[in-house]
Design a protein around this nucleic acid. Structure first.
Lengths: 141, 141
DNA sequence: CTCATTTGTATCAGAAGAAGTTACAGACAG
DNA sequence: CTGTCTGTAACTTCTTCTGATACAAATGAG
């Protein structure tokens, strides 16, 4: 299970919130649709809240709703909100510094990583939550 | 430790092989530079061999060398050779089919995933192993 | 032919990280 | 005040990657 199923969950949850515009949705209800635990959802919502994508409310009749209109939320914002740690993971353990390749490879790779991440965000920024929501509603990708 | 440190290791190892053109390198030696275990390297080389990027030889004086010139190996080939399972992981457990969003979200997400992967591969295909090798040699990314 | 070397795999133990669970304090509507 | 929710902490699985040991098969050297 990769670290970035977070992104999938986030888009799922946000689509649900987009669907019920101004109504507060409860973590329990969301968890049911995503087929996971309510606490997992709350942890995720915490990240989305931190990124100012959603607003939560405690207490009776509490729950969560979008902080903005769905067409003002780009997928790249969602991607950045959940920390899904890049495409290319650098070496787990640092390579040998005694080797001419090992000494420099990390710098080259992290440069490449930045460029790829930039590309992903550029691509994701073309879609809004509204777009996704509409695709889901039409039952067609 | 993400699944795609495989890609980093692969680029590292292939750079080493590019460096010592026609000489067979042993998994033990490579493991030392990458700072990992020889078996891990052999597992990785197995994938690269399967993708026709390297050629291995058993027995005394055995080892591994590139199957092609470094300027004929693009990074996107390396990316595809190691199975680093895409940027967006789909839901771990399938979402609820009773929910209008849960029912369709996976199709939309996997469509998005394909598009992003295509973008990554397009970006990676601009670089060859030769390019990386040169950057490493110059000690500059 | 025999032997030392090296890959290719299988298998298992350990580490790390994510997900699921339980529990409870704090906020808030009625 | 009471019942309902969120936010968070703490703990237990579960899964996946890595590391390690072992050994058969290949192969070059003597």
């Amino acid at each position: 299970m990769a670290a970035n199923s977070q992104f999938s969950m986030a888009v799922h949850v946000l689509s649900m919130l987009a669907r019920s515009k101004d109504e507060n949705l409860k973590s329990d209800f969301l968890a049911c649709s995503v087929n996971t635990n309510a606490v997992v959802i709350r942890r995720l919502l915490g990240q989305l809240n931190h990124a100012n994508l959603v607003v939560s409310q405690t207490g009776a009749n509490g729950g969560t709703r979008l902080a903005r209109c769905p067409d003002e939320i780009s997928l790249s914002e969602i991607y950045k909100a959940v920390d899904c740690g890049g495409v290319i993971a650098l070496h787990a353990k640092a390579p040998s510094k005694d080797c001419p390749v090992g000494k420099n490879i990390e710098a080259v790779l992290s440069c490449l990583q930045r460029e790829i991440d930039k590309g992903i965000e550029e691509k994701l920024s073309r879609y809004t939550l509204q777009n996704v929501f509409e695709m889901v509603e039409q039952g067609k990708a």
